[in-house]
């Protein structure tokens, strides 16, 4: 899973579209657009623009937090932060979109799983500068515990570089998610393939 930079309104203007256009047909991903700095009109415009591009690549566009933008732009999924509108409510209103949620504890993972969500994002598993202010990383053991407790597919996030992806899968993760490794749109297909080369097929 690829998470967008969050800098679309600042330094990374235009990056999301470049990343979407670089997605290779050979390796479908979930592309999560998480751009809290954009106003709703700009977010709607951006998502409407990339939704068909991502769809053509066989991948899935997930819009962070905003079910309305996800539905109106033709995205395939909505991704809920922990502080979102309650997951069971969104799930009922989602009209068939995939619904995922970020969780940071076992309790949150169990709640999200019982709400019938399609996937969970758990982290930060490893050290990552962007999440360092929120405390130490959760570690592989906690990831393993959560993957054992819930049936919902879990993606590991937070400092998951390609060489650490296999360790997450061995803990029971369904997949991995990252932001920083994919910032260079030019090398995005290579980066995805490097991840896949470390994962069991």
């Amino acid at each position: 899973m690829i998470v967008s930079s969050g800098g679309e309104h600042l330094a990374h203007r235009g990056l999301v579209l470049k990343q979407a256009r670089a997605l290779p047909l050979s390796a479908p991903v979930i592309f999560q657009v998480r751009e809290k700095g954009l106003d709703s009109a700009s977010l709607w415009t951006l998502c409407s623009q990339i939704a068909p591009v991502i769809d053509d690549a066989g991948s899935i566009l997930a819009v962070n937090d905003r079910l309305d933008i996800a539905l109106a732009s033709g995205a395939g999924a909505v991704h809920l932060p922990e502080s979102s509108c309650p997951a069971d409510v969104i799930r009922k209103a989602a009209r068939g979109l995939l619904t995922g949620q970020s969780v940071h504890s076992k309790t949150a993972a169990l709640n999200a799983s019982s709400a019938g969500l399609d996937y969970l994002l758990f982290g930060p598993v490893f050290h990552t500068p962007s999440k360092a202010p929120f405390g130490p990383p959760q570690g592989l053991e906690k990831l393993r515990e959560i993957c054992e407790k819930v049936r919902t597919p879990v993606f590991a996030v937070g400092g998951v570089t390609h060489d650490k992806a296999l360790a997450c899968i061995e803990c029971g993760a369904w997949g991995v998610a990252a932001l920083t490794p994919f910032l260079d749109a030019g090398s995005l297909p290579d980066t995805i393939n490097r991840y896949l080369s470390y994962l069991p097929s």
Partner: peptide, 24 residues
Amino acid sequence: RVDIALAMHADGVHLGQQDMPAAA
């Protein structure tokens, strides 16, 4: 936030020029 209105069945929404288009 059309999503909130949708989720809790509000009577409606108010949209600024920086929000989602009214047609959507």
